[in-house]
Nucleic acid binder design. Structure first.
Lengths: 132, 132
DNA sequence: GGCCGTTTGACAACCATTCTCAACTCTGAT
DNA sequence: ATCAGAGTTGAGAATGGTTGTCAAACGGCC
């Protein structure tokens, strides 16, 4: 796994390009979309590499992953603290929100039922002020 | 289509079989799993039909749909009141939980940012006591 | 019984994602 | 600089869930 051996993953050209592409938009994008962005911006990166890179950074917590309603995975570069998203159904605008109370609630709820290794997903969808 | 024309979908043998299969387990099951349950219980139903049926009832709100972490859609016959799920990653055991505080939090958070027509998803995944 | 719209099921098509593997690229040591 | 070896890449194939196709089967209804 090469997890904590000091060397860590190499910041290659391709990986930086993927991060940069994600940074250049501030919405959630699918791997396919990131791949297109890269192709049309003159620094094409193989699709498999895009997937690997997104997964890599997602595992490290450097990008957030969530699922569209049709199941496609979408990625976004986010702040490091744990948070959730308020997403506009119409234009895709995203607001990061924090809810310590929610974190506490999920944790205690899980503990109460004997669950361990707990993770949770919480997303809020709606229509933003500009779109309504 | 055929939404409110009085006739509605026909309660065919296959559709009832799908609902029954879902009722016979009280976990979330994927379409593929439902298909297997039906096959091995002596009332085989085509895979495409299982998908269509689950979608049909999901649209009607008779079954809940959510996504596993790998994106696969899973279905369950649920109580009608709004609630969330605590799901075991390993065996699929499910606990329905309610959290009025969470409902209030999401609502106020959305309002604060001018979002309307709000919905939300909240699922907790973990390893249950029996599986850990 | 026969007509007609609905439903079914076997199979192909789709599409996101992962796998394979040979070629390539860093990094560190000689 | 050169070499070796581990890490990384990319093209294409393989995988697997899901949806589309379409002819055959079914269920009411006259």
């Amino acid at each position: 796994m090469t997890s904590t051996d000091g060397s860590g993953p190499r910041p290659t050209k391709q990986r930086l390009a993927v991060l940069e592409a994600l940074a250049s938009v501030d919405d959630f994008r699918s791997a396919q979309e990131v791949h297109e962005i890269l192709s049309s911006s003159g620094s094409p990166v193989g699709l498999a590499t895009v997937y690997r890179t997104l997964q890599l950074y997602a595992d490290q917590g450097d990008v957030d992953v969530l699922r569209r309603e049709d199941g496609e995975a979408i990625y976004r570069r986010c702040s490091e603290t744990h948070h959730h998203h308020l997403v506009c159904r119409s234009c895709g605008a995203t607001v990061e929100v924090e809810g310590p109370a929610v974190e506490r609630w999920t944790t205690s709820m899980a503990a109460e039922h004997g669950f361990t290794a707990v993770s949770h997903t919480l997303e809020i969808f709606g229509t933003c002020a500009a779109c309504s």
